[in-house]
Write a protein that binds this DNA or RNA. Structure first.
Lengths: 230, 230
DNA sequence: TGTAAAGTTTAACCGCAGTTAAATTCCACA
DNA sequence: TGTGGAATTTAACTGCGGTTAAACTTTACA
């Protein structure tokens, strides 16, 4: 069995690999809030167990076995997040921190029971996909809100779950997964985006959001008035 | 915040104090499956934090702050045990081991939510009392099954939860909390006890049990055909 | 009452995951 | 192309909770 620390490192590398396929020691260290030398030490240990590939001074990558474990931990995390929301009513800005602890103590048996209770869900309360038992994640056709242009209509697929304050703000603005939004304008330079939010019941609201927000929301484009800019 | 190890030590001392008000290092060490010197080390550390009182070579006792923490951990443990049984259908011989891990990661907020979900329960699936938030446990008028005499009728209040095999056996024999039993005979020397078990619907069964079992079942005497022997 | 056995504590050590400080490597730019 | 600065790794150390072996109390009994 791997230690909780190793599980945390593997999960972190997995998440950082989404941006860059090879992860620099310093990036990993600052993500995990440890010193670069601590990260180096753990990287070497994980490399010795064939969980990661390490090219000294160049960065680190998950191996297949490492990725498998990372996906198991992420599956645990997201199942627990959804479970806490659905079964115990924990508000969505709190479930991440709770799940950080629970993900490491979840037995396979309990994982199955929670999965069944939830009806074998495909995504967590923030819209993040839940890997299946084999670690597979279904493909999604998404981009960040910040990539949209004026006139584009989209539905929110996922919001970043790691900042509780942002989540509270998004919740107040009704920016949940499945909410529809339309970009009504984008300012130059700061790229402040005015979006119309569909609140249901033929009600909508308008909101101006900056890149702190727009880069943390994943959407699926609905209308093609304009194509997303790369 | 205390480490998981310290929480485990405090809980262990609490449980062992039920038998003997002062706990010997060797007893504690063997209960926790660590070496006596490891126990000594932790005892000294806990004594320095005023969690226990240590009389060298004589044994260890919880202080008031130590007992408070022990009761909090036990409350977590028993709430989790009941929650796993009620909400997720985990069989009663498995909940103890799961709860051993979960008790250390339960936030106060989640504790309250689980407590409310369960309707502020007073005992766990094995009949063990759940301390309230202040650490108070309601008094109970119980003795062990082994203390009863021929003819005594009693209702099972609690069964020891720490041995999964015994629990499976007890479950098959329908020896749950709230089951009524009557002692029909006791052999000399081995003190093998024949008990009649009320299975409900006017059905009962008979079973011969030894002291491994009878000392692990707490009962409340119903009829007073004979008083319990001290 | 002296002593040996049993129990307890101390001492020296280990692995884990972190730290700071020093050495090393890499890379960009003059 | 040589070199300075930034990033990375190594080295030396820390605290935690465990180990075994040795030293020390306590106690029971001859």
């Amino acid at each position: 069995m791997n230690s909780q620390a190793i599980e945390d490192y593997l999960k972190a590398i997995y998440k950082l690999q989404v941006r860059d396929s090879t992860v620099l020691t310093s990036v990993l260290a600052s993500y995990l809030q440890v010193s670069p030398s601590a990260a180096t030490g753990m990287i070497k240990k994980m490399a010795a167990s064939n969980l990661v590939r390490h090219r000294p001074y160049q960065g680190v990558e998950l191996t297949a076995p490492g990725e498998k474990i990372a996906l198991e931990v992420i599956r645990h995390h997201r199942l627990v997040e959804l479970y806490l929301t659905e079964a115990l009513g924990v508000p969505w800005d709190k479930v991440h921190d709770e799940a950080e602890k629970w993900e490491h103590v979840l037995s396979e048996d309990l994982e199955d029971r929670i999965d069944a209770f939830l009806g074998y869900p495909k995504s967590d309360p923030h819209g993040a996909p839940i890997p299946d038992r084999d670690g597979k994640i279904s493909d999604r056709d998404v981009c960040t809100l910040s990539e949209l242009s004026t006139g584009d209509k989209a539905v929110i697929i996922e919001v970043c779950d790691e900042d509780a304050e942002i989540l509270r703000y998004l919740g107040e603005a009704h920016l949940y997964p499945r909410t529809e939004v339309q970009v009504t304008s984008v300012t130059p330079f700061d790229e402040l985006m005015t979006i119309r939010i569909d609140l249901g019941n033929y009600i909508s609201s308008e909101l101006v959001v900056g890149q702190k927000i727009t880069t943390r929301i994943l959407v699926k484009l609905l209308s093609l008035d304009k194509s997303p800019t790369a």
